[in-house]
């Protein structure tokens, strides 16, 4: 809009003498240029502040981390009382470091953030190891809150597989076709490749349902899922889960994005990352199910079968991931579901 204003002024001066015109024009150019330069300087300043901050962060973080490592290594050979005290000190320092990381998150790149998180994780693991070794008995175990599994194992399901037609969500203008299954209670539903391959599949408002999607959707979105068991073939891009509770999910995908979900078990194959946000009691285990066309579906999806980061979950409400988030856990092997028959 500024440009437009300037332009119209310029047309107005065309009537004046040539020299004046050029003079004025140059002056205006010059002014615009000065403003631009100012603007650019500000931009560079803000970027260099970010760089400075991240430089400051890295040096402080690394110094602090080295001092904690020193503390930890001073434990070897020391007697019990000393170890207890040193570990205590190391723990306090690690927590402070975590807080520092949390506060710095804003101006760190994703790469720096992850590196720092990994370093914190390492510190915690080694202090746990030292504690275990020097001060046994005080066992610390992090268990999944996976009691809901029991409930799911005997759901009141109709024994005849019902095929429900795709229904449209009412918010959707009817011009494009989304593959949508919604508003079902107590239904057993099986879909195959013909219906879902390469589709964007939406599951909403399902209660007490058993769902099998044998095929490879492009993407899968599920919301308002209550007490369901959902097994889906490899999804080429992301799976978006919102408002899901007391359920069991089994899915291979590229990304898993879990929101507002409680007491749910996820059997996962994820080639990049899984995240949770506003979740409680979400358990994770590797995807081990099988069904006749799984191999083909993997090929259709393009997912790397040998790359599964199922256990690396980012909790967006728990960003300084030095300590495990209380909102999710790995499902202990003994508690994992192995039978996926309908």
């Amino acid at each position: 809009m500024e440009a437009m204003a300037e332009h119209s002024q310029e047309t107005r001066v065309t009537g004046e003498s040539g020299a004046d015109k050029i003079q004025e024009r140059l002056q205006r150019r010059h002014q615009a240029r000065a403003e631009d330069a100012e603007r650019k300087k500000e931009a560079q300043a803000s970027q260099s502040v970010a760089e400075e901050k991240s430089g400051y962060f890295l040096s402080t973080f690394n110094a602090e981390r080295a001092s904690i490592e020193d503390l930890l290594s001073s434990c070897s050979g020391a007697d019990r009382a000393v170890v207890t005290q040193t570990l205590e000190e190391a723990t306090v320092k690690t927590l402070q470091l975590q807080k520092f990381l949390n506060d710095s998150m804003l101006f760190l790149t994703q790469y720096e953030l992850r590196r720092a998180q990994d370093a914190l994780k390492k510190l915690l693991t080694s202090s746990a190891d030292i504690r275990e070794e020097a001060l046994p008995k005080k066992k610390f175990a992090f268990r999944a809150r996976s009691k809901a599994t029991d409930k799911v194992s005997a759901p009141p399901v109709t024994d005849t597989p019902t095929v429900t037609d795709s229904t449209k969500v009412d918010v959707a203008p009817a011009e494009s076709v989304q593959c949508c299954f919604s508003n079902m209670d107590n239904v057993c539903m099986i879909k195959t490749a013909e219906e879902i391959n390469k589709q964007d599949v939406l599951l909403t408002h399902l209660t007490n349902c058993k769902v099998r999607l044998f095929g490879s959707p492009s993407t899968l979105h599920m919301t308002h899922i209550d007490n369901c068991e959902i097994l889906c073939g490899p999804v080429s891009s992301s799976v978006f889960v919102d408002h899901c509770r007391n359920s069991t999910l089994a899915i291979p995908c590229q990304q898993l994005r879990t929101h507002n979900t409680t007491d749910t078990q996820v059997y996962l194959h994820v080639t990049s990352r899984a995240i949770v946000e506003d979740c409680r009691g979400v358990g994770f285990a590797p995807f081990t199910c099988s069904y006749p066309t799984l191999d083909e579906d993997f090929i259709v999806s393009g997912l790397d079968r040998h790359r599964n980061n199922w256990s690396q979950v980012d909790d967006f409400n728990w960003l300084a991931a030095g300590t495990p988030s209380p909102n999710w856990a790995l499902i202990p092997e003994a508690d994992r579901k192995t039978n996926w028959e309908l």
């Binding site: 804003l106 760190l108 790149t109 994703q110 990049s272 995240i275 393009g302 980012d314 967006f316």
Partner: peptide, 12 residues
Amino acid sequence: VSTISPTLGFNI
């Protein structure tokens, strides 16, 4: 683009 994770923070 196959290895992209949900973004924690930002990328430049």
